[in-house]
Every structure is written in C-alpha cells, then in structure tokens.
Amino acid sequence: MKQVEYELVAEDHKAGIKFSVSRVLHKLGLSSSGYYDYLKRKPSYQDKRRQDVKKAILQVYEESHENYGAPKIAKILNSGGITITERTVGVYMRQMGIRAQWVKPHTQTTIHSDFSGKLKNLLDRNFSPDHPNCVWCTDITYIHTQLDGFVYLACIMDLYSRKIISWKLTKTLDTGPILESIKEARKQRPANEPIMIHTDRGVHYTCDLYRKLTRGMVRSYSAKGVPYDNACIESFHSLIKREWLNRFVIQNYRHAYRLVSEYIDGWYNPKRIHSHCGYMPPTEYEVMYPRTSTN
C-alpha cells in the first residue's frame, strides 16, 4: 500500500503540482527516507506493466474524443490482447484524472398536436429488429447557437444497427425543412417491404405532409408524454450533445452543421463502438449482417 502512495506523490510531483513533499509525506504517515528509497529503485515488472496499461487506456480515451468510459475501454483493450477488468480500468482512470463525459438532464421539446386520430404504438419498445431497414425511428432536438439562436436537428435512426441513416439541420421548426430527412432516408434506403417508422406525437409527425412522405410505411407513435417509447433516438440526441456539441460555444448555423457532420458522419456511424452492436460501430455492424444472417 505504501508503494502505491509513494507512486501517487511522485506522479503529482512530476506533473508539476507545487507542494511540499515532506509535508505531504508527514500527513500521509509516510517516511521521507522510504519515499526517496522508492525513487531510487528501478521499476518492477508490475510497475512497468501498470504504466504501459495506463498509456494504452489514455490512447483509447483520446481516440474516442474523451468519450469512452471504463466498460468500452476495457472491451477494446481486451480485444487488442491486454487482459484487464473494467474495474481496474476505472481505478486507473480515476488515478489519471480522466472520465467519460457526463450525462446532461433530458429536456422535453416536443409540442404535441391535437390530432384526434388513433395513434398506436406498434413498436411497443421492441428496439431490436432482426435485420436492417426494418424499423426506423426519428425525433427532433434543438441546438443553441450564439448568433442564430436555436437550430433544430432531425435524425432518422435504423434500430437494427442504431445507425443514423439521415439527418437534417434547420434554422426553423417549419415542417417542410424538418421532414426533408425522411425524403433523404427513403432515397438512401429504398425497400420493397413496408418499413415501420416510429415517432412521438408532435405536430411534425401527424401532419398531412408527414403522412404523404411516409405513404406505404407502417407508422407507430409513442404514448403521449412517454419519451421512453422512443428511447433510442432520444438517447442519441443526448449522446451527441454530451459527447460533442456541449464542448463548444457554437457560433451559428454553419458551425453547428459542421459539428453535427463531424460527429455523425465522421465518428458515430463509422467509428464509435456500441454495446448493442457487439462493440462494433453501426456501419460495420450493418456490413456484417449478410455474413451472420441465416435468411
């Protein structure tokens, strides 16, 4: 135990933190002679391995844009031949002063329509369809900018892989521009069979234009005021803010557009591993489908 404490004191001192070593040692109940003997000793095999593992953890953490926590880092290290538990990764991360991004509180943004028809929840929280292009879900979230006020992000997710197959950033909540994401998704992913598309009950998803754009598709709706019915896309919108957008003071629409593109097209779809996808990125998981399918 003393060696670990000596190591922490030495690491803080090397990092340039200004403090009296003798005073810290005294408060910890450690001897100065023992500390300086520790500094003179050559690192043991365990010490070297610990430092190598910490370097590997830091590399994975930085490559994830500081987003991955202990579970994902442990998974990647184990797949790369470094045997380590999630708990140990967590301990090392705390020692190194690094952590995954914090979750921000959910904010309700949906404006419910007065549409009087019967809107049924056909999805019924079955968030794991057995093949791509079977179930889509969509929602809208807001992004604050300094010069242009709020801009609005509409995303469509394929629930099989959690891949964002289409997204649209608009300056207003006007229905036409928001629903351009559906046009793009249908262009990108034509299908011979009906696709289920799940949404909340906001005015954008109960209007005539929405019904026109989704003609031939199976429409499913969350219960009023129950965001958990559309949890996957709600979770994604929290994720893009937590992992990326909240780091920046976003200047205007163009800045927001660039950041959204960098995250979705440059990171989330092609590179970010997902536990739902067996710790593969969404794009890779979809590519693997024909190889694993028995159909």
Rank of each mutant, 00 (worst) to 15 (best):
128 S>V: 14
128 S>P: 03
96 M>W: 01
120 K>I: 13
118 K>N: 13
121 N>M: 05
96 M>Y: 08
129 P>M: 04
113 S>Q: 03
106 H>V: 07
126 N>P: 10
120 K>G: 01
103 V>C: 02
132 P>Q: 01
108 Q>D: 07
113 S>E: 10
112 H>E: 07
121 N>F: 09
122 L>Y: 15
130 D>Q: 11
142 Y>C: 07
100 A>N: 12
125 R>C: 13
150 F>N: 08
123 L>D: 10
142 Y>E: 13
116 S>C: 05
143 I>G: 12
93 M>Q: 02
93 M>L: 00
103 V>I: 15
135 V>L: 15
127 F>I: 10
117 G>P: 00
94 R>H: 15
115 F>W: 02
134 C>D: 13
148 D>V: 07
119 L>G: 03
98 I>K: 00
143 I>N: 05
149 G>K: 08
138 T>M: 11
111 I>H: 10
105 P>I: 08
96 M>D: 00
121 N>T: 09
134 C>P: 06
109 T>K: 00
102 W>D: 07
138 T>K: 02
153 L>F: 10
122 L>W: 11
144 H>D: 06
145 T>V: 09
145 T>G: 05
143 I>F: 01
120 K>C: 07
130 D>G: 11
130 D>C: 11
105 P>H: 01
116 S>D: 04
141 T>H: 02
114 D>R: 11
126 N>A: 15
121 N>Y: 03
146 Q>H: 04
147 L>G: 03
96 M>G: 04
146 Q>W: 12
137 C>F: 02
97 G>K: 02
140 I>A: 05
127 F>N: 07
95 Q>G: 00
133 N>E: 10
113 S>W: 04
120 K>L: 09
134 C>V: 01
100 A>P: 06
126 N>M: 13
136 W>G: 05
127 F>A: 11
147 L>I: 05
116 S>V: 10
101 Q>V: 09
142 Y>H: 08
131 H>S: 14
132 P>I: 03
125 R>G: 15
137 C>M: 11
97 G>W: 04
149 G>I: 09
136 W>L: 09
144 H>K: 01
105 P>W: 04
123 L>P: 04
104 K>P: 01
112 H>N: 11
128 S>R: 13
137 C>Y: 08
142 Y>N: 07
129 P>G: 11
100 A>M: 02
152 Y>A: 14
139 D>V: 14
148 D>G: 04
100 A>E: 06
95 Q>T: 06
146 Q>P: 00
151 V>Y: 04
111 I>D: 08
96 M>T: 13
120 K>F: 14
113 S>T: 03
118 K>Q: 06
101 Q>W: 03
126 N>F: 02
127 F>K: 05
101 Q>Y: 13
94 R>C: 01
138 T>I: 02
107 T>L: 06
104 K>F: 11
101 Q>D: 08
102 W>P: 09
128 S>K: 15
129 P>T: 03
152 Y>D: 13
150 F>L: 07
130 D>A: 12
114 D>M: 01
95 Q>S: 01
129 P>E: 03
133 N>L: 08
95 Q>A: 10
114 D>Y: 07
140 I>L: 04
131 H>P: 09
94 R>L: 11
123 L>N: 11
133 N>D: 07
134 C>S: 15
126 N>G: 13
153 L>I: 13
104 K>H: 12
145 T>Y: 08
103 V>T: 11
109 T>R: 13
100 A>V: 11
